[in-house]
């Protein structure tokens, strides 16, 4: 169950230009957070200013990347692109942040038939790393398929390697791994029947391509979708995702019904 927690910044490091790993002391979330769940951070209220900043107006959503229940720590990995994430990048050790979480349903680790393909790119990689670690710790076979624009845009690969999850890479420009998109490296393994379940997290065009591919192979797949989120708690109905089906359109909330949906369940 989601709750509000004051997270204290333990460390903040740049991993590649513009991308940060933020380590927070947040014991509650560290104990209950599961792969595919996320937190929302009030980037306008670092150290709870007497007046909250009205701008940026919303919290920012970030997937759980690592949790350490013993140390009571939670890591997120994010790209500082817009005004809210750039403010977050200014947070320094000792700063206090209001963290809401863990939110969302997460990936169905228990139901997934192995071997599991972890497919993603960009800021979709952190939740897949978390899932990969859990699978590795349980001895469940998994393999990561990570796509990116070029070699210098890739991150998280070492994390998979470190926990013993093999990882294959594609880049648009061929500067690392196979030249092409992530479905190009996934397809041969699906054809070879080396995958029984797909977990995917990444930009929407990538998720659509994965959706197309898994439907050809009739494989169960779970996609973590992105949507603009205001409340993260099912109150505003702003994060609607179209559900598949004929007739009157129907919608689900990405924040409470998702962010992970069965591939055939949603229209992206």
């Amino acid at each position: 169950m989601a709750s509000l927690e004051t997270g204290v910044v333990v460390a903040q490091e740049t991993i590649i230009p513009g991308h940060f790993v933020l380590t927070l002391a947040a014991p509650g979330i560290s104990r209950t957070g599961r792969p595919g769940q996320f937190v929302m951070i009030d980037v306008g209220a670092i150290n709870k200013l007497p007046h909250p900043l009205a701008d940026p107006f919303w919290r920012r959503a970030f997937g759980l990347y690592r949790v350490d229940p013993e140390a009571g720590r939670v890591d997120i990995l994010y790209r500082a692109g817009g005004k809210g994430s750039r403010l977050l990048a200014l947070a320094a050790p000792g700063d206090k942040l209001s963290v809401l979480g863990p939110l969302g349903n997460g990936f169905p680790l228990e139901e997934a038939e192995a071997p599991v393909a972890l497919v993603g790119g960009g800021t979709g990689v952190p939740p897949l790393v978390f899932a990969g670690r859990v699978f590795a710790s349980r001895g469940i076979p998994a393999k990561a398929y990570i796509g990116g624009r070029s070699a210098n845009q890739l991150f998280g690969l070492d994390d998979f390697a470190a926990c013993g999850v093999p990882v294959q890479v594609s880049t648009d420009d061929g500067s690392a791994g196979v030249r092409g998109v992530v479905t190009d490296i996934l397809r041969p393994d699906l054809e070879a029947l080396e995958v029984r379940t797909v977990f995917a997290c990444g930009p929407t065009p990538m998720l659509r391509a994965v959706q197309g591919l898994v439907s050809q192979f009739k494989l169960p797949a779970y996609l973590s979708v992105e949507a603009y989120m205001a409340c993260g708690r099912g109150l505003c109905l702003g994060c609607a995702v179209r559900l598949a089906g004929d007739g009157e359109p129907r919608y689900a909330n990405a924040c409470t019904d998702g962010p992970v949906f069965r591939s055939e369940e949603v229209v992206l």
Binding site: A54, F57, W58, A227, Y228, C236, L237, A240, P249, Y251
Partner: peptide, 23 residues
């Protein structure tokens, strides 16, 4: 009511826009 197609909300300067469509 099913409500409007997404995106239904967007952050703006010191505020937001919504078109939930009375779901």
């Amino acid at each position: 009511r099913a409500g409007n197609p997404p995106p239904r909300i967007v952050e703006t300067t010191a505020g937001m826009l919504n078109s939930i469509g009375l779901e």
